[in-house]
Design a protein around this nucleic acid. Structure first.
Length: 198
DNA sequence: AATTAGATGTTCT
DNA sequence: GAACATCTAATTA
C-alpha cells in the first residue's frame, strides 16, 4: 500500500492526525528485516499543553525536531530504558507530534518475537509504546527521520476503518500535566486486544 | 487482581 | 539531583 503523504502530516491538526493514524500501518526495515503492524493506539501532543515536551514553545536540542515540518520521526528515551516513537505534525515552527502507543503485528512476526525474547505470539509483544518500538527495532538512532522518503521507517495506508470503531479517551501517564491530562487526545481501536492496558 | 520496586539514561533545574 | 509520554517480575491478597 502507498505511504502517507506529506500533506497528511502537515495539513491537519495534530489531534486529527492522531485519530486518522488509527488503522494505518507502521513499517520498519531495520537490519534488513521488514516488520510492520496496524496502528491501534495513539496520543496527540501539542506545544499548547503541559504534557508536551515543547510546552510553551520550549526549544532544546531534544525538542528541535518537534518544531520542524510534519512527517518526521521523533524518538526519545523514556525512563532511561524505553524508546518511544512519535510522528511530528503541522507546519514549520509549530511543535506537535503523535505518539504511537500500540500496534497489531502484521509482517515479520518472527523477528518481533525474537527482538522481544518471546517464543509465542501474545498481545504483550507490541501492546505499549515501549514494547512496539522494541518489536519493530526502533531506537533513538531512528530519531529525526523523514517518513515520506526514508528507506527504513514509514507509514502506509490500509483498509478503511469505520469511525465508530475509533474511541477517544484521556492520555496515559501524564498526570503531571494536571488539567491537560484530561484532554481526550488518546485514540484506540474499539474491541482490539492489541492496545495497552490502562 | 492489585500493588510495588527496580531497572536505566537523558534532560533540565 | 529530580523528573520522566514505561515495563517486568515479584509480592500480597
Amino acid at each position: 500500500m502507498p505511504r502517507l503523504s506529506k500533506r497528511f502530516f502537515q495539513l491537519n491538526e495534530v489531534v486529527e492526525v492522531a485519530r486518522a493514524l488509527i488503522g494505518k500501518v507502521f513499517v520498519t526495515k531495520i537490519d534488513g528485516l521488514i516488520t510492520s503492524g496496524l496502528i491501534t493506539e495513539t496520543e496527540a501532543y501539542h506545544q499548547s499543553e503541559k504534557a508536551c515536551h515543547a510546552y510553551n514553545g520550549r526549544r532544546t536540542n531534544r525538542t528541535e525536531v518537534l518544531f520542524g515540518p510534519g512527517g518526521k520521526s521523533y524518538v526519545y528515551l523514556c525512563y532511561g530504558i524505553h524508546h518511544l516513537f512519535n510522528v511530528t505534525t503541522g507546519v514549520e515552527g509549530e511543535a506537535a507530534a503523535v505518539l504511537v502507543r500500540a500496534i497489531e503485528p502484521l509482517d515479520g512476526v518472527d523477528y518481533m518475537l525474537e527482538r522481544r525474547r518471546m517464543t509465542a505470539l501474545q498481545t504483550r509483544v507490541s501492546s505499549g509504546p515501549g514494547k512496539l518500538t522494541q518489536a519493530l527495532g526502533v531506537t533513538v538512532k531512528n530519531n529525526n527521520t523523514c517518513l515520506i522518503t526514508a528507506e527504513d521507517l514509514w507509514i502506509e495506508t490500509y483498509k478503511e476503518i469505520p469511525q465508530s470503531r475509533i474511541v477517544a479517551s484521556k492520555r496515559i501517564g501524564v498526570n503531571y500535566a494536571r488539567e491537560d491530562s484530561l484532554l481526550p487526545w488518546r485514540f484506540y481501536l474499539k474491541n482490539s486486544k492489541w492496545v495497552s492496558s490502562s
